[in-house]
Design a binder for these strands. Structure first.
Lengths: 227, 227
DNA sequence: AATACAATTTTTGAATTCAAAATCGTGGAA
DNA sequence: TTCCACGATTTTGAATTCAAAAATTGTATT
Protein backbone atom coordinates (compact mmCIF):
# COMPACT_ATOMS: atom_id res chain seq x y z
CA UNK A 1 0.00 0.00 0.00
CA UNK A 2 1.27 3.44 -0.99
CA UNK A 3 2.10 5.98 1.68
CA UNK A 4 -0.53 8.43 0.50
CA UNK A 5 -3.09 5.68 0.57
CA UNK A 6 -2.40 4.89 4.21
CA UNK A 7 -2.82 8.56 5.10
CA UNK A 8 -5.99 8.72 3.07
CA UNK A 9 -7.56 5.60 4.57
CA UNK A 10 -6.64 6.64 8.07
CA UNK A 11 -8.11 10.06 7.41
CA UNK A 12 -11.34 8.45 6.31
CA UNK A 13 -11.42 6.28 9.40
CA UNK A 14 -11.15 9.39 11.53
CA UNK A 15 -13.64 11.43 9.52
CA UNK A 16 -16.16 8.60 9.47
CA UNK A 17 -15.89 8.53 13.21
CA UNK A 18 -14.83 4.91 13.18
CA UNK A 19 -12.41 6.05 15.81
CA UNK A 20 -14.56 8.53 17.74
CA UNK A 21 -13.24 12.03 18.47
CA UNK A 22 -11.21 12.06 21.62
CA UNK A 23 -10.76 8.29 21.62
CA UNK A 24 -7.38 6.70 21.72
CA UNK A 25 -6.15 5.43 18.38
CA UNK A 26 -5.60 1.68 18.56
CA UNK A 27 -2.31 1.26 16.73
CA UNK A 28 -2.33 -2.49 16.96
CA UNK A 29 -5.81 -2.92 15.52
CA UNK A 30 -5.27 -0.46 12.71
CA UNK A 31 -2.08 -2.25 11.71
CA UNK A 32 -4.04 -5.45 11.36
CA UNK A 33 -6.94 -3.74 9.62
CA UNK A 34 -4.75 -1.99 7.06
CA UNK A 35 -2.32 -4.91 6.91
CA UNK A 36 0.73 -2.76 7.49
CA UNK A 37 3.31 -2.58 10.22
CA UNK A 38 3.59 0.14 12.79
CA UNK A 39 6.20 2.14 10.89
CA UNK A 40 4.00 3.36 8.02
CA UNK A 41 1.03 3.72 10.32
CA UNK A 42 2.96 5.99 12.63
CA UNK A 43 4.19 8.03 9.68
CA UNK A 44 0.58 8.55 8.66
CA UNK A 45 -0.35 9.52 12.21
CA UNK A 46 2.26 12.26 12.23
CA UNK A 47 1.02 13.62 8.93
CA UNK A 48 -2.55 13.68 10.19
CA UNK A 49 -1.38 15.30 13.39
CA UNK A 50 0.11 18.09 11.31
CA UNK A 51 -3.26 18.37 9.57
CA UNK A 52 -4.96 18.73 12.91
CA UNK A 53 -6.93 15.51 12.74
CA UNK A 54 -4.84 13.65 15.28
CA UNK A 55 -3.50 14.67 18.66
CA UNK A 56 -0.08 13.29 19.63
CA UNK A 57 0.58 12.91 23.34
CA UNK A 58 4.30 12.22 23.75
CA UNK A 59 4.85 8.82 25.29
CA UNK A 60 1.14 8.56 25.73
CA UNK A 61 -0.13 7.59 22.33
CA UNK A 62 -2.33 9.44 19.88
CA UNK A 63 -5.98 10.36 19.91
CA UNK A 64 -8.53 11.38 17.34
CA UNK A 65 -8.80 15.17 17.53
CA UNK A 66 -11.72 16.48 19.44
CA UNK A 67 -13.28 19.67 18.17
CA UNK A 68 -14.19 22.26 20.73
CA UNK A 69 -16.75 24.95 20.03
CA UNK A 70 -13.86 27.32 19.56
CA UNK A 71 -12.23 25.00 17.03
CA UNK A 72 -15.41 24.79 15.00
CA UNK A 73 -15.82 28.52 15.15
CA UNK A 74 -12.24 29.11 14.04
CA UNK A 75 -12.44 26.58 11.25
CA UNK A 76 -15.59 28.18 9.91
CA UNK A 77 -14.06 31.58 10.08
CA UNK A 78 -11.08 30.47 8.02
CA UNK A 79 -13.26 28.47 5.66
CA UNK A 80 -15.28 31.60 5.07
CA UNK A 81 -12.17 33.58 4.29
CA UNK A 82 -10.90 30.95 1.89
CA UNK A 83 -14.22 30.70 0.09
CA UNK A 84 -14.46 34.45 -0.22
CA UNK A 85 -10.99 34.54 -1.69
CA UNK A 86 -11.85 31.67 -4.01
CA UNK A 87 -14.97 33.50 -5.12
CA UNK A 88 -13.04 36.63 -5.97
CA UNK A 89 -10.46 34.69 -7.95
CA UNK A 90 -13.04 32.49 -9.59
CA UNK A 91 -14.75 35.55 -11.00
CA UNK A 92 -11.56 36.41 -12.83
CA UNK A 93 -10.78 32.91 -14.00
CA UNK A 94 -13.86 30.76 -14.24
CA UNK A 95 -14.33 29.22 -17.66
CA UNK A 96 -17.67 29.01 -19.37
CA UNK A 97 -17.61 25.25 -18.97
CA UNK A 98 -17.03 25.55 -15.24
CA UNK A 99 -19.72 28.18 -14.97
CA UNK A 100 -22.12 25.88 -16.72
CA UNK A 101 -21.21 23.00 -14.43
CA UNK A 102 -21.86 25.19 -11.41
CA UNK A 103 -25.15 26.37 -12.84
CA UNK A 104 -26.22 22.79 -13.41
CA UNK A 105 -25.21 21.73 -9.93
CA UNK A 106 -27.14 24.71 -8.63
CA UNK A 107 -30.26 23.71 -10.53
CA UNK A 108 -29.95 20.16 -9.24
CA UNK A 109 -29.50 21.47 -5.72
CA UNK A 110 -32.63 23.59 -5.92
CA UNK A 111 -34.46 20.52 -7.18
CA UNK A 112 -33.32 18.53 -4.14
CA UNK A 113 -34.41 21.41 -1.95
CA UNK A 114 -37.90 21.21 -3.45
CA UNK A 115 -37.91 17.45 -2.86
CA UNK A 116 -36.68 17.92 0.69
CA UNK A 117 -33.79 15.54 0.03
CA UNK A 118 -31.20 16.84 2.47
CA UNK A 119 -28.49 14.30 1.65
CA UNK A 120 -28.55 15.02 -2.06
CA UNK A 121 -28.85 18.72 -1.32
CA UNK A 122 -25.68 18.62 0.73
CA UNK A 123 -23.91 16.70 -2.00
CA UNK A 124 -24.70 19.35 -4.59
CA UNK A 125 -23.99 22.15 -2.16
CA UNK A 126 -20.56 20.77 -1.54
CA UNK A 127 -20.03 20.26 -5.26
CA UNK A 128 -20.78 23.93 -5.90
CA UNK A 129 -18.40 25.22 -3.26
CA UNK A 130 -15.68 22.88 -4.44
CA UNK A 131 -16.24 23.94 -8.03
CA UNK A 132 -15.84 27.59 -7.06
CA UNK A 133 -12.58 26.79 -5.30
CA UNK A 134 -11.44 24.77 -8.31
CA UNK A 135 -12.32 27.68 -10.59
CA UNK A 136 -10.01 29.91 -8.55
CA UNK A 137 -7.27 27.90 -10.22
CA UNK A 138 -4.94 28.04 -7.24
CA UNK A 139 -3.67 24.67 -5.98
CA UNK A 140 -2.39 26.17 -2.73
CA UNK A 141 -5.84 27.51 -2.00
CA UNK A 142 -7.43 24.22 -2.97
CA UNK A 143 -5.12 22.34 -0.65
CA UNK A 144 -5.85 24.52 2.34
CA UNK A 145 -9.54 24.44 1.59
CA UNK A 146 -9.55 20.66 1.43
CA UNK A 147 -7.75 20.40 4.72
CA UNK A 148 -10.04 22.85 6.48
CA UNK A 149 -13.24 21.34 5.10
CA UNK A 150 -12.05 17.86 5.99
CA UNK A 151 -11.63 18.88 9.59
CA UNK A 152 -14.97 20.57 9.73
CA UNK A 153 -16.91 18.08 7.63
CA UNK A 154 -18.84 16.43 10.40
CA UNK A 155 -19.93 19.76 11.82
CA UNK A 156 -20.80 21.17 8.44
CA UNK A 157 -22.89 18.41 7.01
CA UNK A 158 -24.37 16.74 10.04
CA UNK A 159 -26.07 19.60 11.80
CA UNK A 160 -29.83 19.88 11.68
CA UNK A 161 -31.11 22.15 8.92
CA UNK A 162 -34.10 24.27 9.86
CA UNK A 163 -36.63 25.23 7.16
CA UNK A 164 -35.97 28.98 7.39
CA UNK A 165 -32.23 28.44 7.34
CA UNK A 166 -32.62 26.23 4.31
CA UNK A 167 -34.65 28.85 2.49
CA UNK A 168 -32.03 31.47 3.30
CA UNK A 169 -29.27 29.20 2.03
CA UNK A 170 -31.07 28.75 -1.26
CA UNK A 171 -31.55 32.49 -1.66
CA UNK A 172 -27.90 33.05 -0.93
CA UNK A 173 -26.92 30.45 -3.46
CA UNK A 174 -29.01 32.20 -6.09
CA UNK A 175 -27.03 35.34 -5.35
CA UNK A 176 -23.75 33.41 -5.50
CA UNK A 177 -24.50 32.01 -8.92
CA UNK A 178 -25.66 35.40 -10.06
CA UNK A 179 -22.54 37.20 -8.92
CA UNK A 180 -20.36 34.53 -10.48
CA UNK A 181 -22.15 34.84 -13.81
CA UNK A 182 -21.68 38.60 -13.66
CA UNK A 183 -18.03 38.01 -12.72
CA UNK A 184 -18.60 40.33 -9.79
CA UNK A 185 -15.67 39.35 -7.58
CA UNK A 186 -16.23 41.84 -4.80
CA UNK A 187 -19.92 41.08 -4.65
CA UNK A 188 -19.35 37.34 -4.61
CA UNK A 189 -16.77 37.56 -1.85
CA UNK A 190 -19.22 39.54 0.19
CA UNK A 191 -22.06 37.08 -0.34
CA UNK A 192 -19.89 34.06 0.42
CA UNK A 193 -18.75 35.63 3.66
CA UNK A 194 -22.34 36.23 4.69
CA UNK A 195 -23.38 32.77 3.50
CA UNK A 196 -20.86 31.01 5.65
CA UNK A 197 -21.40 33.33 8.60
CA UNK A 198 -25.06 32.32 8.61
CA UNK A 199 -24.21 28.66 8.49
CA UNK A 200 -21.71 29.12 11.28
CA UNK A 201 -24.16 30.90 13.52
CA UNK A 202 -26.67 28.16 12.93
CA UNK A 203 -24.25 25.41 13.82
CA UNK A 204 -23.01 27.13 16.93
CA UNK A 205 -26.56 27.78 18.02
CA UNK A 206 -27.58 24.20 17.25
CA UNK A 207 -25.27 23.18 20.04
CA UNK A 208 -22.53 21.36 18.27
CA UNK A 209 -21.11 21.50 21.77
CA UNK A 210 -22.42 18.03 22.48
CA UNK A 211 -19.51 16.57 20.59
CA UNK A 212 -17.24 18.14 23.09
CA UNK A 213 -18.53 19.33 26.37
CA UNK A 214 -15.34 21.05 27.33
CA UNK A 215 -13.77 18.65 29.74
CA UNK A 216 -10.29 17.39 29.14
CA UNK A 217 -9.14 14.17 27.64
CA UNK A 218 -9.18 12.52 31.02
CA UNK A 219 -12.94 12.17 30.68
CA UNK A 220 -14.88 9.23 29.33
CA UNK A 221 -13.28 7.20 26.59
CA UNK A 222 -16.15 8.18 24.29
CA UNK A 223 -16.92 4.74 22.95
CA UNK A 224 -20.34 6.14 22.16
CA UNK A 225 -21.40 7.18 18.68
CA UNK A 226 -19.44 10.21 17.46
CA UNK A 227 -22.25 12.45 16.31
CA UNK B 1 15.16 14.59 20.29
CA UNK B 2 11.43 15.20 20.21
CA UNK B 3 9.48 14.53 17.06
CA UNK B 4 8.39 18.13 16.67
CA UNK B 5 11.98 19.23 17.04
CA UNK B 6 13.12 17.02 14.19
CA UNK B 7 10.41 18.46 11.96
CA UNK B 8 11.33 21.95 13.03
CA UNK B 9 15.05 21.56 12.46
CA UNK B 10 14.52 19.90 9.12
CA UNK B 11 12.17 22.70 8.15
CA UNK B 12 14.85 25.23 9.02
CA UNK B 13 17.41 23.35 6.99
CA UNK B 14 15.11 23.55 4.00
CA UNK B 15 14.14 27.17 4.53
CA UNK B 16 17.72 28.24 5.03
CA UNK B 17 18.48 26.62 1.72
CA UNK B 18 21.05 24.36 3.30
CA UNK B 19 19.50 21.79 1.03
CA UNK B 20 18.85 23.89 -2.08
CA UNK B 21 15.40 23.84 -3.70
CA UNK B 22 15.10 20.99 -6.12
CA UNK B 23 18.07 19.17 -4.66
CA UNK B 24 17.86 15.66 -3.43
CA UNK B 25 17.60 15.33 0.33
CA UNK B 26 20.56 13.36 1.65
CA UNK B 27 18.93 11.06 4.17
CA UNK B 28 22.19 9.56 5.30
CA UNK B 29 23.90 12.86 6.00
CA UNK B 30 20.93 14.36 7.78
CA UNK B 31 20.70 11.31 10.02
CA UNK B 32 24.29 11.88 11.07
CA UNK B 33 23.84 15.62 11.39
CA UNK B 34 20.73 15.34 13.56
CA UNK B 35 22.01 12.23 15.28
CA UNK B 36 18.86 10.24 14.66
CA UNK B 37 18.08 7.13 12.66
CA UNK B 38 16.21 7.03 9.42
CA UNK B 39 12.84 6.25 10.98
CA UNK B 40 12.21 9.62 12.68
CA UNK B 41 13.83 11.46 9.80
CA UNK B 42 11.51 9.88 7.32
CA UNK B 43 8.53 10.65 9.53
CA UNK B 44 9.58 14.28 9.49
CA UNK B 45 9.98 14.18 5.71
CA UNK B 46 6.41 12.99 5.29
CA UNK B 47 5.13 15.76 7.51
CA UNK B 48 7.06 18.37 5.56
CA UNK B 49 5.84 16.83 2.32
CA UNK B 50 2.29 17.38 3.56
CA UNK B 51 3.28 20.99 4.28
CA UNK B 52 4.52 21.35 0.74
CA UNK B 53 8.17 21.87 1.62
CA UNK B 54 9.31 18.46 0.45
CA UNK B 55 8.54 16.50 -2.67
CA UNK B 56 8.32 12.73 -2.30
CA UNK B 57 9.15 10.71 -5.37
CA UNK B 58 8.06 7.12 -4.70
CA UNK B 59 11.03 4.80 -4.73
CA UNK B 60 13.11 7.71 -5.87
CA UNK B 61 13.77 9.62 -2.67
CA UNK B 62 12.70 13.06 -1.63
CA UNK B 63 13.67 16.51 -2.80
CA UNK B 64 13.45 20.01 -1.41
CA UNK B 65 10.41 21.60 -3.02
CA UNK B 66 11.14 23.90 -5.88
CA UNK B 67 8.91 26.91 -6.24
CA UNK B 68 7.76 27.74 -9.72
CA UNK B 69 6.55 31.22 -10.60
CA UNK B 70 3.05 29.86 -10.42
CA UNK B 71 3.68 28.49 -6.92
CA UNK B 72 4.94 31.84 -5.70
CA UNK B 73 2.01 33.58 -7.27
CA UNK B 74 -0.47 31.16 -5.70
CA UNK B 75 1.16 31.36 -2.30
CA UNK B 76 1.03 35.14 -2.34
CA UNK B 77 -2.56 35.11 -3.38
CA UNK B 78 -3.50 32.89 -0.47
CA UNK B 79 -1.27 34.80 1.91
CA UNK B 80 -3.05 37.95 0.89
CA UNK B 81 -6.43 36.38 1.55
CA UNK B 82 -5.34 35.13 4.95
CA UNK B 83 -3.91 38.49 5.95
CA UNK B 84 -7.04 40.27 4.83
CA UNK B 85 -9.12 37.90 6.90
CA UNK B 86 -6.79 38.33 9.83
CA UNK B 87 -7.05 42.09 9.51
CA UNK B 88 -10.82 42.01 9.58
CA UNK B 89 -10.88 39.78 12.64
CA UNK B 90 -8.11 41.69 14.36
CA UNK B 91 -10.17 44.86 14.15
CA UNK B 92 -12.85 43.14 16.19
CA UNK B 93 -10.53 41.51 18.69
CA UNK B 94 -7.25 43.35 18.99
CA UNK B 95 -6.45 44.38 22.54
CA UNK B 96 -5.01 47.75 23.45
CA UNK B 97 -1.77 46.08 24.43
CA UNK B 98 -1.50 44.35 21.07
CA UNK B 99 -2.36 47.55 19.30
CA UNK B 100 0.38 49.32 21.17
CA UNK B 101 2.86 46.59 20.34
CA UNK B 102 1.98 46.91 16.67
CA UNK B 103 2.28 50.68 16.81
CA UNK B 104 5.72 50.38 18.39
CA UNK B 105 6.87 47.86 15.82
CA UNK B 106 5.56 50.19 13.15
CA UNK B 107 7.51 53.12 14.55
CA UNK B 108 10.65 51.00 14.72
CA UNK B 109 10.08 49.87 11.15
CA UNK B 110 9.76 53.43 9.89
CA UNK B 111 12.98 54.23 11.72
CA UNK B 112 14.78 51.37 9.92
CA UNK B 113 13.34 52.65 6.66
CA UNK B 114 14.88 56.06 7.32
CA UNK B 115 18.18 54.36 8.11
CA UNK B 116 17.95 52.24 5.00
CA UNK B 117 18.43 49.09 7.09
CA UNK B 118 16.59 46.54 4.98
CA UNK B 119 17.23 43.54 7.24
CA UNK B 120 15.86 45.20 10.33
CA UNK B 121 13.04 46.68 8.28
CA UNK B 122 12.02 43.20 7.15
CA UNK B 123 12.20 41.94 10.69
CA UNK B 124 9.80 44.58 11.93
CA UNK B 125 7.60 44.21 8.89
CA UNK B 126 7.23 40.54 9.59
CA UNK B 127 6.60 41.23 13.24
CA UNK B 128 3.72 43.54 12.36
CA UNK B 129 2.04 41.09 10.03
CA UNK B 130 2.44 38.30 12.52
CA UNK B 131 1.04 40.46 15.28
CA UNK B 132 -2.04 41.22 13.19
CA UNK B 133 -2.58 37.53 12.59
CA UNK B 134 -2.08 36.83 16.28
CA UNK B 135 -4.59 39.54 17.13
CA UNK B 136 -7.16 37.73 15.00
CA UNK B 137 -7.15 35.23 17.81
CA UNK B 138 -7.76 32.23 15.59
CA UNK B 139 -5.24 29.38 15.93
CA UNK B 140 -6.43 27.71 12.74
CA UNK B 141 -5.74 30.89 10.83
CA UNK B 142 -2.39 31.30 12.53
CA UNK B 143 -1.41 27.78 11.62
CA UNK B 144 -2.25 28.16 7.96
CA UNK B 145 -0.56 31.54 7.86
CA UNK B 146 2.61 30.13 9.36
CA UNK B 147 2.67 27.31 6.87
CA UNK B 148 2.09 29.59 3.88
CA UNK B 149 4.61 32.20 4.99
CA UNK B 150 7.18 29.51 5.69
CA UNK B 151 6.91 28.26 2.14
CA UNK B 152 7.14 31.71 0.69
CA UNK B 153 9.70 33.14 3.06
CA UNK B 154 12.65 33.15 0.72
CA UNK B 155 10.66 34.82 -2.02
CA UNK B 156 9.16 37.33 0.36
CA UNK B 157 12.19 38.56 2.16
CA UNK B 158 14.97 38.09 -0.31
CA UNK B 159 13.76 39.98 -3.31
CA UNK B 160 15.32 43.31 -4.16
CA UNK B 161 13.44 46.28 -2.74
CA UNK B 162 13.30 49.29 -5.02
CA UNK B 163 13.12 52.77 -3.45
CA UNK B 164 9.69 53.64 -4.86
CA UNK B 165 8.32 50.26 -3.81
CA UNK B 166 9.73 50.78 -0.35
CA UNK B 167 8.11 54.19 -0.07
CA UNK B 168 4.79 52.72 -1.16
CA UNK B 169 5.09 49.94 1.39
CA UNK B 170 5.63 52.47 4.14
CA UNK B 171 2.61 54.49 3.08
CA UNK B 172 0.53 51.34 3.00
CA UNK B 173 1.71 50.42 6.44
CA UNK B 174 0.68 53.81 7.75
CA UNK B 175 -2.78 53.10 6.39
CA UNK B 176 -2.78 49.62 7.93
CA UNK B 177 -1.97 50.94 11.37
CA UNK B 178 -4.51 53.67 10.95
CA UNK B 179 -7.32 51.32 9.95
CA UNK B 180 -6.45 48.99 12.79
CA UNK B 181 -6.57 51.81 15.31
CA UNK B 182 -9.94 52.85 13.93
CA UNK B 183 -11.02 49.19 14.12
CA UNK B 184 -12.08 49.52 10.49
CA UNK B 185 -12.19 45.86 9.48
CA UNK B 186 -13.42 46.30 5.94
CA UNK B 187 -10.96 49.06 5.26
CA UNK B 188 -8.07 47.11 6.68
CA UNK B 189 -8.91 44.01 4.68
CA UNK B 190 -8.95 46.14 1.57
CA UNK B 191 -5.62 47.78 2.33
CA UNK B 192 -3.95 44.48 3.18
CA UNK B 193 -5.10 42.96 -0.05
CA UNK B 194 -3.67 45.86 -2.00
CA UNK B 195 -0.48 45.83 0.08
CA UNK B 196 0.25 42.23 -0.68
CA UNK B 197 -0.80 42.53 -4.29
CA UNK B 198 1.82 45.22 -4.75
CA UNK B 199 4.49 43.13 -3.15
CA UNK B 200 3.49 40.19 -5.29
CA UNK B 201 3.65 42.14 -8.50
CA UNK B 202 7.05 43.41 -7.51
CA UNK B 203 8.39 39.96 -6.82
CA UNK B 204 7.01 38.45 -9.98
CA UNK B 205 8.40 41.31 -12.00
CA UNK B 206 11.77 41.06 -10.28
CA UNK B 207 12.11 37.69 -11.94
CA UNK B 208 11.91 35.30 -9.07
CA UNK B 209 11.90 32.87 -11.97
CA UNK B 210 15.61 32.40 -11.67
CA UNK B 211 15.04 30.07 -8.76
CA UNK B 212 13.17 27.81 -11.10
CA UNK B 213 13.44 28.14 -14.80
CA UNK B 214 10.63 25.76 -15.48
CA UNK B 215 12.39 22.59 -16.48
CA UNK B 216 11.68 19.36 -14.71
CA UNK B 217 13.55 17.72 -11.92
CA UNK B 218 15.65 15.81 -14.37
CA UNK B 219 17.68 18.95 -14.85
CA UNK B 220 20.79 20.06 -13.01
CA UNK B 221 21.24 18.96 -9.44
CA UNK B 222 21.28 22.59 -8.36
CA UNK B 223 24.31 22.48 -6.18
CA UNK B 224 24.51 26.21 -6.76
CA UNK B 225 23.49 28.76 -4.16
CA UNK B 226 19.74 28.63 -3.52
CA UNK B 227 18.90 32.29 -3.92
C1' DA C 1 -10.02 -1.31 54.22
C1' DA C 2 -7.44 2.06 51.96
C1' DT C 3 -3.37 3.82 50.23
C1' DA C 4 1.33 3.80 48.86
C1' DC C 5 4.94 1.38 46.79
C1' DA C 6 7.10 -2.03 43.84
C1' DA C 7 7.18 -5.43 40.22
C1' DT C 8 5.24 -6.77 35.90
C1' DT C 9 3.13 -5.95 31.68
C1' DT C 10 2.02 -3.09 27.99
C1' DT C 11 2.84 0.50 24.94
C1' DT C 12 5.52 3.86 22.83
C1' DG C 13 9.53 5.67 20.20
C1' DA C 14 13.47 4.68 17.63
C1' DA C 15 17.37 1.67 15.72
C1' DT C 16 18.23 -2.11 13.09
C1' DT C 17 17.33 -5.36 9.69
C1' DC C 18 15.51 -7.04 5.39
C1' DA C 19 13.44 -7.17 0.81
C1' DA C 20 12.38 -4.72 -3.25
C1' DA C 21 13.33 -1.17 -6.38
C1' DA C 22 16.35 1.97 -8.73
C1' DT C 23 20.86 3.48 -10.08
C1' DC C 24 25.43 2.70 -11.51
C1' DG C 25 29.08 0.33 -13.87
C1' DT C 26 30.91 -2.82 -16.91
C1' DG C 27 31.12 -5.47 -20.99
C1' DG C 28 29.61 -6.89 -25.36
C1' DA C 29 27.52 -6.12 -29.85
C1' DA C 30 26.30 -3.18 -33.68
C1' DT D 1 32.69 4.47 -31.00
C1' DT D 2 28.20 4.25 -29.32
C1' DC D 3 24.34 2.01 -27.67
C1' DC D 4 22.15 -1.48 -25.11
C1' DA D 5 22.00 -5.27 -21.78
C1' DC D 6 23.04 -7.45 -17.70
C1' DG D 7 24.86 -7.77 -13.05
C1' DA D 8 26.58 -5.28 -8.78
C1' DT D 9 25.77 -1.65 -5.63
C1' DT D 10 23.10 1.66 -3.48
C1' DT D 11 18.93 3.44 -1.84
C1' DT D 12 14.33 3.20 -0.58
C1' DG D 13 10.29 1.48 2.02
C1' DA D 14 8.70 -1.36 5.55
C1' DA D 15 8.97 -5.16 9.18
C1' DT D 16 11.17 -6.45 13.09
C1' DT D 17 13.65 -5.72 17.13
C1' DC D 18 15.06 -3.28 21.19
C1' DA D 19 15.11 0.06 24.95
C1' DA D 20 12.70 3.33 27.60
C1' DA D 21 8.53 5.13 29.45
C1' DA D 22 3.94 4.60 31.23
C1' DA D 23 0.08 1.86 32.86
C1' DT D 24 -1.37 -1.87 35.53
C1' DT D 25 -1.43 -5.14 38.89
C1' DG D 26 -0.36 -7.04 43.21
C1' DT D 27 1.30 -6.62 47.84
C1' DA D 28 2.36 -4.79 52.10
C1' DT D 29 1.70 -1.55 55.62
C1' DT D 30 -0.91 1.61 58.21
Amino acid sequence: MLHEEVVSRLRDILLEGEVPPGARIPERELCLKLKISRTPLREALKVLAAEGLVLLLPHRGSRAARLTDKDVHDLFEVCQGLEALAGELACERVTDAQLQEIAEAHAAMVEHYRDGDLTQYYRRNRQIHEAIVAAACNPVLSGLYDSVTARIRRARYLTPMTPPRWATAIREHEAILNALERRDGMGLAHILRAHLRHKREEIIKAGFAEIDSGRGLAGHESAAAPV
